[in-house]
């Protein structure tokens, strides 16, 4: 059972997992940046949903920075939380309503976001299977190269 301390320590996942995590980070970035763009394209005026778009962008940035800082377990948690949450939200808004807001279709931006979020979830899950989140304990104490 990983402790909180081990989760927040820098980890060094296997190369395959690291590549998957990097690809997931790109997908997280696409989703986050598109949410920021939509926020300024009119969603800012939508109660609750608008601020959530902004929160998605901020959360995506923080999550990516966590991966850059080698906190892979936290990146995995953040990536899954943000993207699964956003996918469920968009499904609700298209099929019933989400905090009273409903949409009727998927324009180009919405399609990009859904594809990016689905890719982020898939890549993060694959990285998790490849040992992307649990490689910290085995390399504890390893000196970081700072060349």
């Amino acid at each position: 059972m990983p402790t909180l301390k081990s989760l927040t320590e820098p980890s060094h996942p296997p190369p395959v997992a690291l590549a998957l995590l990097a690809a997931a980070a790109v997908a997280v970035a696409v989703g986050g940046l598109e949410h920021a763009r939509l926020f300024h394209r009119g969603y800012a005026e939508v109660e609750i949903v608008g601020p959530l778009f902004l929160l998605n962008a901020i959360g995506s940035a923080v999550t990516i920075l966590l991966l850059i800082a080698r906190r892979t377990a936290l990146f995995v948690a953040g990536s899954l939380a943000i993207n699964v949450g956003a996918l469920v939200s968009i499904l609700f808004s298209h099929n019933s309503s989400f905090f009273g807001f409903s949409e009727g279709g998927y324009d180009a931006t919405a399609t990009i976001i859904v594809v990016a979020e689905a890719a982020a979830v898939l890549l993060t899950g694959l990285a998790l299977v490849a040992g992307g989140a649990g490689a910290g304990a085995g390399v504890r104490g390893r000196t970081e190269v700072t060349a």
């Binding site: 920021a36 926020f39 901020i58 920075l65 850059i68 190269v145």
Partner: peptide
């Protein structure tokens, strides 16, 4: 942090900072 990761972090902060601030986002019709 290695210089590469420092540069990546700076890129993420600048890109998201601009996007969140709305720079170049156009705005609604």
């Amino acid at each position: 942090m290695t210089p590469v990761r420092t540069a990546l972090a700076a890129l993420v902060v600048v890109a998201f900072g601009l996007a969140i601030a709305g720079a170049g986002m156009g705005g609604p019709p």
